[in-house]
Nucleic acid binder design. Structure first.
Lengths: 152, 152
DNA sequence: AGCTATTATGCATAAATATGAAAGGCTCGT
DNA sequence: ACGAGCCTTTCATATTTATGCATAATAGCT
């Protein structure tokens, strides 16, 4: 179906946090050859229960719904604790070793969080590579992950 | 100061989930003899990083920021697990027995979550009483609490 | 107190978002 | 293939939210 595909794109766009208004979605989707109006986006946003968050930097940006984010985080924390083996970082990269078989699941959970620090994620059988958007972003990210690992 | 007091009221109003637009805040604050315009509310909302959430029931309502909610939930879970003794429920009430001294802390954490099922919360030294908004709301709430207790 | 700088608010309005109504598509049963 | 019922989308527009600018309030000086 068309609607679902579009909404998948919208999800993907979420983490590139320059999305301040619905028209931005319209513009970005056009670049992907998906042609919609703001009205449709408004309804998609309602469907998907996205929220417009006042960001610390003064602007606004759209983001995942609270509940879903919380649920995902729980799964993420559990998976991390279950499967975590070791951890290394260099430059804008974070490399996590996990028990065999857990890489893909962990990677996709991290993606699902739509952290706006994360440029991309990539998981093979026993390794997850996370690429931060910047050096600072990567440091933040490390902290987030460590917090997740150390209970809270 | 005036602004902070108003924002405290706004926080309190949050959990009474009939708040669909900023004008609702204006109206409700007037009932408390706090006289402001929608413009101010808009700025408060930005300050406090509140979000307008598309609710499952089709409308919209304002709610706590994601991050804060997540942090509070972590503390809540920890406190629950630490201090939990026993649990009883009847009608729209949930009564939680906790280790002496932990009642007030737990109650205020529950308040801070701004669950929209909750009508009110009340904590003495070793007991917390939660009053749900309705029977269904109370059942939901129980589930939420049980989920919190059983790890996740 | 008086003066200045900073912050907060209201007004008016621009900007952004939501939505009714009409139109187009899709699915299914006949 | 046709039509009924159901979604989905757009257009036009109403509603809601954000903000520039002017003013008022507050806090800090001296």
């Amino acid at each position: 179906m068309k609607k679902q595909e579009r909404q998948r794109y919208i999800k993907r766009l979420l983490s590139s946090n320059e999305i301040e208004r619905q028209e931005d979605f319209v513009r970005l989707l056009r670049a992907e050859d998906i042609d919609v109006t703001q009205a449709t986006i408004s309804r998609d946003i309602k469907d998907m229960q996205l929220v417009k968050v006042p960001s610390v930097t003064g602007g606004y940006h759209y983001s995942m719904p609270v509940q879903k984010k919380m649920d995902t985080e729980k799964k993420l924390r559990r998976t991390l604790k279950d499967a975590y083996v070791s951890y290394a970082t260099q430059d804008k990269f974070v490399l996590i070793k996990v028990l065999p078989g857990n890489g893909p699941a962990l990677a996709s959970l991290i993606e699902a969080m739509h952290y706006d620090n994360v440029f991309g994620t990539l998981g093979d059988d026993d390794t997850v590579l996370i690429i931060g958007k910047s050096l600072d972003a990567t440091l933040d990210l490390q902290q987030t992950l460590q917090r997740l690992l150390s209970d809270n």
